[in-house]
């Protein structure tokens, strides 16, 4: 049984994100250019590079939050600017968590799921929160939580939205070793369900039996 109930098995098998000749300019200089790669179902793409090499810009371009200076990002062989269903199949988490500090984790999750036009059953929410060791902190506001716990709430929202494509910018920031292991298990679960992940991370991914593509932005210059 697939987690992505709105997609047919055929759609799941042909699900790809194609990045073609993507270039990003900052001022007069290219920070990367003519970058091409694809992300297929069950694949994890890890983008690596020095600070300022354009990892965040690349992820935002893939998410459709900024327009590329050159090149295209396609979903199901259609440019994402023309695709109506791309945003419905994608979940993005940037450097900022998108949480309201005055609300507790459950209220924030309800808000983020509503913004992503998703529904989730309470047992599944509780399971994910327990896996991320947040179960005992649901009565506190997010402002009372540590940076790592806030990051885990934001990651829980990405997981609970159950979109096939996850775009994550430094997801392991502020997380402890145990949380990183739990998160990796959830990533593997997602990949086993034919999900796709593209993330920028400096952290090595251990215990992964799935397709990992390491992409270095330095090489694209």
């Amino acid at each position: 049984m697939t987690l992505f109930s709105h997609l047919t098995p055929k759609e799941l098998n042909v699900m790809t994100v194609d990045i073609k000749n993507l270039s990003c300019k900052r001022g007069e200089h290219f920070i990367f250019r003519k970058l091409s790669f694809s992300i297929s179902a069950g694949e994890l793409v890890v983008i690596k590079g020095q600070n300022g090499s354009g990892k965040t810009s690349l992820l935002k371009m893939i998410a459709g939050l900024i327009l590329p200076d050159k090149g295209t990002v396609s979903w199901h062989h259609r440019n994402i600017t023309e695709s109506n269903d791309y945003r419905a199949n994608m979940s993005f988490l940037g450097h900022k968590n998108g949480l309201k500090m005055a609300l507790n984790p459950l209220e924030n999750l309800a808000n983020l799921l509503a913004l992503g036009e998703c529904k989730q059953s309470l047992p599944r929410v509780e399971t994910v929160l327990r896996m991320l060791d947040l179960g005992a902190h649901c009565d506190k506001t997010c402002g009372q939580l540590s940076s790592g716990q806030q990051r885990k709430v934001a990651l829980a929202a990405v997981i609970l939205k159950q979109k096939p494509l996850w775009i994550l910018d430094e997801p392991y920031t502020a997380l402890d070793t145990q949380s990183i292991d739990s998160l990796n298990k959830l990533f593997m679960e997602h990949l086993a369900n034919k999900g796709m992940i593209v993330m920028a991370s400096h952290h090595p991914i251990k215990g992964c039996q799935h397709n990992i593509v390491n992409l270095s932005l330095q090489e694209s210059l």
Binding site: L65, R87, A88, G94, H95, K96, N97, G98, K100, L115
Partner: peptide, 10 residues
């Protein structure tokens, strides 16, 4: 914008 909430709007 500061909280990153705008990025989460579908």
């Amino acid at each position: 914008r500061e909280e990153g909430m705008l990025e989460q709007v579908r």
